[in-house]
């Protein structure tokens, strides 16, 4: 009994958290899927530019770029999401985002296939991330947005790109 109450309240809380997520999202596509990230996290969008490889870094790190004198790491979202590699096209873009790690904020770039548009998503349009069961990682999904007939996967960019995650992945790579 107590358990079910706790579950229900947890569900309520998470639903309430989702309600807060209404706002403007920058949508982009990787393969057939459409993703969205909070517009406030986005610093700018730049076209593809030469990326300097960093040897012995995790494979989802494409390398570093020189963004007007600032050197920032660039993450390959395709690799990160374990999707198939493909050649860059003229539509390939780098979205420069501000990632919060603990107290400081880090500037990073994410490579996406194509940038779509900025959309406003109301709270009624957001559903919590579906639970797929064990083995499917959904912690970096804020929720699922429904716009007309389309589905937008809303990403928690802090979790996708957090330094700590980079660290754990790096550790894992070392152990192998």
């Amino acid at each position: 009994m107590a358990n079910s109450v706790a579950e229900a309240s947890a569900a309520l809380r998470s639903h309430a958290a989702i309600q807060d997520r209404a706002g403007q999202y920058l949508t982009f596509s990787i393969g057939p899927e459409v993703y969205g990230i909070e517009i406030l996290k986005v610093q700018e969008i730049i076209g593809m530019m030469p990326v300097t490889k960093v040897p012995r870094s995790p494979d989802f790190v494409r390398g570093v770029i020189n963004l007007r004198g600032k050197v920032i790491p660039v993450i390959e979202l395709r690799k990160k999401f374990e999707m198939e590699q493909r050649e860059d096209t003229s539509m390939t873009c780098i979205i420069v985002v501000q990632v919060a790690t603990g107290t400081q904020s880090i500037t990073m770039g994410i490579i996406v296939d194509e940038v779509a548009e900025v959309v406003a998503i109301a709270k009624e349009q957001i559903e919590p991330a579906p639970q797929f069961g064990a083995g499917v990682r959904t912690e970096f999904i804020l929720g699922i947005g429904k716009i007309a007939s389309k589905v937008v996967i809303l990403l928690d960019v802090d979790k996708v790109l957090s330094w700590s995650e980079l660290a754990t992945i790096d550790e894992a790579a070392k152990e192998q």
Binding site: T52, V54, P55, R56, S57, P58, V61, V64, N66, G69, K70, V71, I72, P73, V99, T101, Q104, I106, T107, M108, L161, W163, L166, A167, D170
Partner: peptide, 20 residues
């Protein structure tokens, strides 16, 4: 000019930074 690369320290320990 030396630049630190934030967010990449743990990934590549022998890279201390980047230079332009």
């Amino acid at each position: 000019v030396l630049k630190t690369i934030h967010g990449l320290q743990t990934c590549a320990s022998f890279v201390t930074g980047a230079a332009l």
